[in-house]
Each structure stands twice: as structure tokens, then as C-alpha cells.
Amino acid sequence: MNTAVIVFPGSNCDRDLAVAFEQATGKKPHMVWHRETELPDGIDLIGVPGGFSYGDYLRSGAMAAQSPVMRAVSDAAAKGIYVLGICNGFQVLTETGLLPGALMRNAGIQFVCRDVKLTVANSQSAFTSRYKADEEILIPVAHHDGNYFADAATLDRLEGEGRVAFRYAEEVNGSARNIAGVLNEGGNVLGMMPHPERMSEAAHGGLDGKKLFDALASA
């Protein structure tokens, strides 16, 4: 499996994500700068990493969503190529329109940085197939704007179609229906606020995040 990691000015989890991709696939990812208009040929999985792209100016992810490379990412997503957006990457994917809803300021106003318990709400997707249904896992979050919002009809549709991948098993940021990660209609795009790449080696304190990368590598 060939992978790419998008790098924006202000990305700060790109190298961690590249390590996780490499460990899962055995191959070094292509690091793709935001000004590129095309992705390398033969990419099977694209990572949109966490960080503070463009300093979170205007809205988190808003400027990055307009960068040239995101047009190529949208085209790739339409072809069924896997796209994984983590934290700021999730914000970028909602701003791009690849995923529904928006990530607003945390309900408690404060930046939240700690390990949180999640429930795997859909264990059938290409991203989550190594988890058991309703499995409780521990993954860190680190965000200021993680409060997932969508209108009630959209939330009902996401739940009805099994597109909620992860839920918070505890109160974290005020997200609607405790949603921590959502899939697109095709099931090939996942956005999530928690950082699986920060729970992928024994030294991280757990391996719950590694299963996501291993699942993708064998998808």
C-alpha cells in the first residue's frame, strides 16, 4: 500500500502520522506539500494530519481547505482512495465538504489534551475492522475546536447509515451525540478528532491506535 501525508504550513503531526503509516505498510509515505496540484501516482491512502494549518486563521481548517492540494485529495476521495483526517485534518475535511458537519470551539472553552475513552461505533469500515463492535479504546485528544456539530437530520442520517465510526465514552468537548469520528457516504474517508498515531507504539502507553493503521494496511 502506498501512502501520502499532506503537509500544510502549521501542520505538526505530519511526521508522527508518517511514522504510523510506515510501520503499518512497511513503506515510507510521500510527504506532499500543500501547494502541489497533484498527488504522486498509485497512492492508496492519504493522511491529512493534525496541527494548526495556517494558524487556524478564519476557522480551523478553512484556509487549508482552499489550498491547491485539497482539490487533488477531493478527486482522489471521489475515486475511492482512502483519506484519513486526524484532528486539524478532520477540520480540513469538513471545511472541504468531504465530510458533513463542522468542528466548533470546545463546549468548555478550554483546549483539551488528555487520553480519552472512545467506543467503536462501527467496526465494519476499512479503518475500524480490527476493532470489535462497541470496543472501548483509549486514544489521546489535543484540540480546541473539537465540538462536532451537524443539524439533527444530518446526525440521524449519519447514525442510520453507520457512519459514526467513534464516539467519546466520556464528556470531552460537547460534541453532538458524543461523535468523535465520522465516515463519508462511500466509507473511504474518515475524520476523527482523537490521535491514533499517538497511541501506536508501546512507548506511547498503548496500542489502541495502531489497529486503525493495521486495518488500513490490509484493506
Binding site: L58, R59, A62, Q66, T94, G101, A102, M104, F149
Partner: peptide, 9 residues
């Protein structure tokens, strides 16, 4: 519509 506002919210 394209940038200044996020019309979802």
C-alpha cells in the same frame, strides 16, 4: 459562501 463563512454553522 466559499470562504468567509461556514454556512453549516
Amino acid at each position: 459562501k466559499k470562504l468567509l463563512a461556514n454556512t453549516v454553522i
